[in-house]
Simulated scan of single mutants.
Amino acid sequence: MTELALPGLDRLLSVCRQLELEVLTEPPGHTPPAVGSRVGGYPLDPMLAAFYSRFGRAMFARKSVGMGLFRVDDGVNELEDDNQQWRETWQQYFALPLFVFGGYSGLAWYLATVPGLADAKGSQPVVFVDAYDDTYALPVASNVDRFFDVFSHYLEALVSHPDYEADGSSALSFPWRVPELLARDAPLVELLRAGRFDPLLKDDELRAWAAKVVHFGT
């Protein structure tokens, strides 16, 4: 089987190199999880499978942002372990089942796919999850590679922000302050416009933010 291309991931790696933002990666296991295999109770997203065929784990912009994907290799399967924990603790707060695959170092901020919204090829949209007291999820990409792509554009905007040197990643929070970047993802805008994420947008603030993404994408 030909390995699925991930141009968004390639761009993210390139942007991190150009901006001198530290990237940590580890090699994949000898038998990485296959497309469609059951992981954490759901069929594995094909783009996540493609990622784990290349890396066992990764962390991007480690010192300034610290966004990374869970470790999956011959000795550890954090996708399985962390999703079991997710189901036992946080899933009850969300109206749609979520599959967590990464997050932010030292923070209860996660990245998750939405298996129930998979497209015809099995690719699942991505949400940013805040699991602090006010638990919520914000749609950020129509698929995993689109997430890598928009995050690369976010890092470019962050580093060029006038307050970056003083404030780091808090100078431009993702995804709240970059709806115009997310709006470049036309399939995401269509999913929002069609109300597919409505069960997750549980209050006026979340719905107003989602409306901004749709507005910028019009």
Rank of each mutant, 00 (worst) to 15 (best):
G29C: 10
L24F: 07
L13H: 04
M47V: 10
L44S: 12
S14L: 14
L44F: 04
P46W: 01
T31C: 12
P27C: 02
T25Y: 01
G29I: 05
P28R: 11
H30G: 12
G41S: 11
S37G: 09
R17C: 04
V15H: 04
S37V: 15
Y42D: 12
H30V: 05
E22V: 13
E22R: 14
E22A: 13
L21V: 08
A34T: 07
G36D: 10
T31P: 05
Q18I: 01
T31W: 11
G36C: 10
G29V: 07
E22Q: 12
T25E: 07
Y42L: 11
G36Y: 09
V15F: 04
G36T: 05
L24V: 13
M47H: 11
P32H: 03
S14T: 15
A34N: 01
H30I: 03
V15K: 02
T25K: 04
E20M: 09
P33E: 03
P32I: 03
R17H: 14
V39I: 15
S37Q: 14
M47K: 13
L44V: 07
Y42K: 10
H30C: 04
T31S: 14
V39D: 03
E26C: 02
Q18F: 09
G29M: 04
P33G: 03
Y42I: 10
L13S: 02
T31Q: 14
T31D: 12
G40K: 05
A34M: 13
E26H: 06
G36A: 03
G41N: 12
D45G: 14
V23P: 03
H30N: 12
P43S: 05
V35F: 00
H30A: 11
A34V: 09
G36W: 11
P27W: 00
R17S: 14
L21H: 04
A34I: 07
H30F: 00
T31G: 02
V23C: 14
T25G: 02
S37R: 12
G29H: 01
H30D: 13
P32W: 01
S37W: 07
G36I: 06
P46C: 08
R17F: 07
P32F: 00
P33R: 09
P27D: 04
P33C: 07
H30Q: 13
L24T: 09
E20I: 01
V39G: 01
P32E: 06
Q18A: 15
L24R: 13
P46S: 08
G36Q: 08
S37M: 13
Y42T: 10
L24W: 10
M47E: 15
S14M: 04
C16N: 13
G36L: 08
E26I: 00
P27Y: 01
P27Q: 02
G41Y: 09
H30W: 02
R17I: 00
Y42C: 10
G29N: 03
P28T: 04
S14D: 15
G36M: 08
V23Q: 00
P33I: 09
L24Y: 09
S14E: 15
V39P: 06
L19C: 07
P28F: 01
P33A: 05
P33F: 02
P43N: 08
P33N: 10
D45Y: 00
P28D: 03
G41R: 12
D45A: 10
Q18K: 14
V35A: 14
L13D: 02
R17Y: 05
M47F: 07
